[in-house]
Computed example of a mutant assay.
Amino acid sequence: MASGQRKQLSALGVYSDGSSHDVTGQVTWNALSTSYATVNSTGLVTGVAAGSSTITATIGSTTGSATATVTAAQAREP
């Protein structure tokens, strides 16, 4: 993603009985390197500056993660 761009993440809970459910709104989202990307309480990631940040989603004692890689914003042609 480019700096300034936004992407929506989702979280899927997979249970011992084999079922799965969307838990996007139930997890706690966190960005480990907010200099590069931030994430809000709904899982919306915003690129801040070129670099990468690990995004975590935690529910109970379970945590999943993804890497948000941010590139420099592209200049627009006039």
Rank of each mutant, 00 (worst) to 15 (best):
I55H: 15
T38Y: 02
R6I: 00
A73D: 13
I55E: 02
T62K: 05
K7H: 00
Q74F: 02
T71S: 04
L12I: 06
M1N: 03
V48A: 08
N40L: 00
A50P: 14
Q5M: 15
G64V: 03
G4C: 14
G25N: 06
Q74Y: 10
S33R: 07
A2Q: 01
W29R: 04
T34R: 06
L12H: 10
K7Y: 00
Q5A: 10
S3L: 02
R76K: 09
A66H: 12
A2V: 15
G4R: 13
R76Q: 13
D17N: 15
A37R: 00
L9P: 04
I59P: 04
T34M: 12
S52R: 08
A66F: 01
T67L: 11
G13R: 10
S20Q: 01
N30T: 09
A66G: 14
D22S: 15
A57V: 11
D17V: 05
V14M: 05
T62H: 06
A37H: 01
T42W: 00
S10I: 03
S65D: 12
V23T: 13
Q5E: 15
G43I: 03
N30I: 00
L12T: 14
P78C: 04
T24F: 00
P78V: 07
V14A: 07
A37M: 00
A75W: 05
